[in-house]
Amino acid sequence: MIKVQNLNKIYKSLHALKDVNLHVKQGELFAYLGPNGAGKSTTIRILTGLTQPTSGSVSLNGFDLKESSIKSRQQCGLVPQSINLDQELSVYENMTIHGLLFRMDRAERDKKIDELLSYVDLSQRCKSLVKELSGGMKRRLMIARALMHSPSVLFLDEPTVGLDAGMRRKIWALIKKIQQQGTTIFLTTHYIEEAEFLADRVAFLDTGTILVIDTPSNLMAKLGSWALDRLIDDKMEPIYFYDRDEANSYIASHKESFTLRRVNLEDAFLAMTGKKVK
């Protein structure tokens, strides 16, 4: 469970987070959606103790991040945006170091390494050096490593950035599997379909402010179910409809060309902020 109250972060002249309030429930997959520079990574850095907030409070499973920083850090696993593995060490060694950092004994460590590497399909690469792995394998290893100490809250900061569509889907399946085991997941992403596919609830973040928190279906339903994209002055302008027949009759009564598609979270974000997530 994550509780964030009136969180602010100011970097010199930049107010990166403005009075952020959140309550993520136990076992929930919560997605934090916003364009680059919206404050997603800053939030995750604060929640995991990497950055100090300017004001506000954060508690993870009841442990205040400021007062019990060691205990709250024990509660969470972090998969950061950039690959932060020891490239010169093997897969096994990277996992071992993480286990040691989280005070696991040898028997427990080895058992967990076996279990997690098979979970992320990397058992065969146990002795390989990290620098020999592909991008997708490194991402999977980072997820496995973050799960080593059985965290109750897992923070995923853009976990699929830079991966191809196939690998992205594999990571999504893995994230779903982790959630099904009761882990609370806090995910930041700027991939609309990722949030749509994975999240129980989504927060829209723009310029450091949370605009709305709701389920993806509720956010999309406010606009309708179908969207017609039309080109106006070199810009795609969508028109929303609640049913397909309504959209088709609109196409039939107009001479312009349209693209019919389902409403997505990007539309909800666009309607709220006037800008796209990506």
Binding site: T48, G49, L50, I70, K71, R73, Q74, C76, L78, P80, S82, I83, N84, L85, D86, Q87, H98, L101, F102, R103
Partner: peptide, 18 residues
């Protein structure tokens, strides 16, 4: 190198290490 290039310092900072 661990801090600026490999970002491993973050991994240690996020762990319960004083």
């Amino acid at each position: 190198i661990a801090r600026f290039y490999w970002h491993i310092f973050e991994e240690i900072q996020a762990a319960p290490v004083s």
